[in-house]
Design a protein around this nucleic acid. Structure first.
Lengths: 161, 161
DNA sequence: ACCGATTGTTATAGACCATTACAATCGGGC
DNA sequence: GCCCGATTGTAATGGTCTATAACAATCGGT
């Protein structure tokens, strides 16, 4: 058997959080936080599956979508949207520029900040990504009825504040 | 102003994922995965708040609860429950032993595996933790009605598979 | 014109987790 | 009773993600 090639990027969690038979979960079964975590890992793995080979992670996906929908956005704002520090937003931006997906352009009226924009290659890439990710999200959520899905979205957003 | 002491352990995300006004979220608003992530971060921060000073993270909490409810469980099984590799389960166990919360005991009938058990100090610690975490989970979920909470739990578990 | 705030940047450190390799032990088939 | 593949715990290593701190350039209000 040939040696396994190292994956170019690895999801941080590789396996779903299982429900081990015959085990007492005690209070965990009553915690929304725990159920949330399990569901999130499941959806994350689906995401990773859908974007296989694209080297895309959830933060990268979110960032690209946000840049695409809000051209000229600053790195600081991008960081705020993602809930990460500015240095992290910068690392993301570097990564995008390194692959020709997005670029920094001078911002008229403020010489400190850059405005972020997708390249045309980035536009195509994001469009393809969105299709795949949305399809996978739908597919994974297909265990729920349309009504349940709407309800879940509503409850989650309420919870997120 | 006195220099800020380094926190003994830092949550990986320090701020909630906000909803930035005037921003176009494009397709993100329709993705369950994204809503899930936002809700999870919010609950995680609440968790971190509730366990302030205890140096407890969600995996540590889960592990201690599971050990408490299933004394004699092996490290490998613990890893499976958490969805992490054996080496990670071992690091957790070391951490617990280092603080006198849990211990490895020889397992009758299998000289390879250890059986994990809470110490009496661990028992008290877990009891206190459970109280705090459950209370905080309830408090945070109080934006939902009882009926909504039940429904959310059901939908999340369905999604997690 | 000055001064506090903001922006991007760099360097550094820490937490978390997987991978790999290894030794001891187990257990089923012969 | 012995052998061999599977399992368990362990140690060493590396990668990824993110925060923190410090810095220079720039902005903007007083």
């Amino acid at each position: 058997m040939p040696p396994k090639l190292p994956s170019p990027h690895r999801p941080r969690t590789l396996v779903p959080i299982p429900r081990v038979g015959g085990l007492d979960y005690d209070v965990l079964d009553r915690l929304i936080g725990y159920a949330l975590r399990r569901a999130q890992v499941a959806m994350f793995l689906a995401f990773h599956e859908a974007t296989r080979g694209l080297e895309i992670t959830p933060p990268r996906f979110t960032a690209l979508v946000v840049i695409g929908a809000n051209p000229g956005i600053s790195q600081t704002t991008l960081g705020n949207v993602l809930g990460i520090a500015r240095s992290g937003a910068m690392a993301l931006t570097d990564w995008f520029e390194g692959r020709g997906l997005a670029e920094r352009r001078a911002k008229p009226g403020d010489a400190r900040a850059w405005g972020l924009h997708l390249t045309s290659r980035g536009e195509r890439f994001v469009a393809r990504m969105k299709t795949k990710v949305v399809a996978e999200d739908r597919r994974r959520a297909a265990v729920l009825s349309r009504r349940e899905r709407e309800e879940l979205l509503r409850l989650l957003n309420k919870l997120a504040g």
